[in-house]
Nucleic acid binder design. Structure first.
Lengths: 333, 333
DNA sequence: CTGAAAGCGCTTACAG
DNA sequence: CTGAAAGCGCTTACAG
């Protein structure tokens, strides 16, 4: 094709430079070349280009299938926005849902081993051994909605679990509640742990140490979520680490003949379908997925194009959504 | 790398043939080459290969963002299984969520214009003009869960909407019901239309023509779903074209003080989250997504590798899931 | 600012 | 069954 562009009487070297926006071509010449290329319907052969540069203008997005339980639209929404941003930047994306088998056997997707993608986004938590294995590939990478101090050299874009939960708890305390419990197995994921620490911080700062109480929601070695509320001392508010847990808890309370929010109040986190389809609907925190996506893409592309190196941990805020499961009570008046 | 494989004293032509499973290499030699390649950790350069063959061993999966409303796990599940099957066959996948803007402005994804994917799967319905535009690209393609008689030359893998709904309706009639209504705007999508026709067929065959009644669920020019049940003559059973409609209808009935399944029965279709999270839960039909995925991948890969040409419309069956919203009544006894 | 030359790592006829 | 030669369409130094 370049040959034909030589219809302009220049060398293909010049054409290549003009089309790739490289310096070393006169402005008028460049414009002439570009318009001629369009006129001729020129389409660059990306393989030939990639053969020389090793860049496909493509980023891989990896996520464990564990995060695609039903109701988990969270990551899909993020992916959608990533796709939009990637397209804007002239990039293509490969979305790989990691099976449990691949994760256990440390099988790295073809898109990475074959160098088809120029960079990779690790969406959500995955097994440490798996991350180690991927980390051996010298390709730009970024955690999204996950971080691990063992892999501190990998930057990450994160929901502000800690501070958001702190604010959330603080708000509820301000509204007059004291006996507030946290629901979540804190060692299950880093997110749950961070949310719990945010809760604790607020409780301690408000001198409510004596009310601090944490319920488990993920029995060991079980994949399902479950909350045991066979407890005489019901709190005023259950702060659940996520909407799904809140949803399950709601069912458990109903079975015991308790009414939400009359007898006890509940809040969730994530603003997923569970918080909207339950009855009553659940007050929760919404995460700005679009911003997480935009930030992640911006950074990974910069890394790929060598424009910048280190970002560390980039935090994205959340917004409270009020629903039926938590309603201000008389204490606030 | 091939050069180094010449450590075996053969030409790189032979190595290329051996590694690609082409004929023209002795069996012993092939094995020797393959094991040497593994030993040396050889990784084929896919770009160089693609430059000659124009094949990246990659398939693109396209879907309109309209199908990623919340609760729509349907297509994501299919994608997940597609990814697994593709990996098994040594293929990579690019998942492109088509924005409304791209669909309206007939913008074709880079993965197709640049020839990065060897074939493309069109998941779910999209605008006819958009399909026409894509159809101009001479690349193997297949509809999944959609068909259009205007594009009869494009094969498709489909849920058996017509026959499944026919069977479903027949079952219900057998259980003693006569006054059965269909809920769904039949001109909205081909799937709804086919489901309706299946319902009608069963009604007519059982001489229940006089009971045939169809309610709208998608007001014109509205994106939300809504069911108007301000109707004196309630049927015994509402057969909704999908779970979401059933879910909405359930709410509408509750507001009128009606109880399901006591006062009236409801069934949905698709077995999505809506049918499980509602209260009562909704009897529905489950589609074998894994089979849809497996079939689609098998066919698109065959098309890419020129092993076969024409499949026409390939139908995948559904399975009834009984839940609370439809319970056998005394008539069956 | 522009061009001639070499080469990226494969595969495809063609010849033996 | 095996190999020598040419070429896929770009980009990267190097030279002017």
């Amino acid at each position: 094709m370049e040959d034909i562009a030589l219809a302009l009487g220049v060398s293909k070297v010049t054409v290549s430079r003009a089309l790739n926006g490289k310096e070393g071509v006169g402005e008028e010449l460049r414009e002439k070349i570009v318009s001629k290329a369009n006129e001729m319907g020129y389409q660059m052969n990306v393989f030939a280009s990639a053969l020389r540069t090793n860049k496909m203008h493509s980023v891989g997005i990896l996520i464990s299938e564990r995060y695609f339980g039903e109701g988990d639209f969270f990551y899909l929404e993020i992916y959608k926005h990533m796709g939009i941003d990637l397209t804007k930047k002239g990039y293509t994306s490969s979305f790989h849902i990691l099976t449990q088998e691949e994760e256990n056997d440390l099988i790295i997707p073809k898109m990475i081993t074959d160098g088809i993608v120029d960079g990779v986004l690790l969406l959500g938590e995955m097994h440490k051994d798996y991350i180690s294995t991927i980390d051996k590939f010298e390709i730009p990478k970024l955690f999204v909605d996950y971080y691990n101090s063992q892999f501190r050299h990998i930057d990450s874009v994160l929901t502000d679990n800690y501070f958001s939960f702190y604010n959330f708890t603080n708000d509820i305390i301000k509204e007059g509640y004291k006996n507030i419990s946290f629901v979540g197995t804190i060692k299950a994921t880093a997110s749950i742990m961070d949310r719990y620490m945010g809760y604790q911080k607020a409780m301690i700062e408000n001198n409510l140490e004596s009310y601090i109480k944490q319920y488990e929601d993920r029995p060991e070695d079980e994949s399902f979520i479950f909350v045991d509320v066979d407890d005489q001392a019901l709190p005023e508010v259950f702060m659940c680490n996520c909407d799904y847990t809140a949803y399950i808890l709601l069912d458990a309370l109903k079975e015991k003949g308790l009414f939400v929010p009359k007898d006890v109040k509940i809040v969730g986190f994530d603003d997923t379908l569970y918080s909207r389809l339950s009855s009553p609907t659940i007050t929760t925190k919404h995460v700005d997925l679009e911003q997480i996506a935009r930030t992640s893409i911006k950074f990974i592309v910069k890394k790929i194009e060598n424009k910048s190196k280190k970002y560390g941990r980039v935090i994205v805020d959340t917004k409270r959504i009020d629903r039926e499961s938590f309603v201000f009570n008389s204490k606030t008046k």
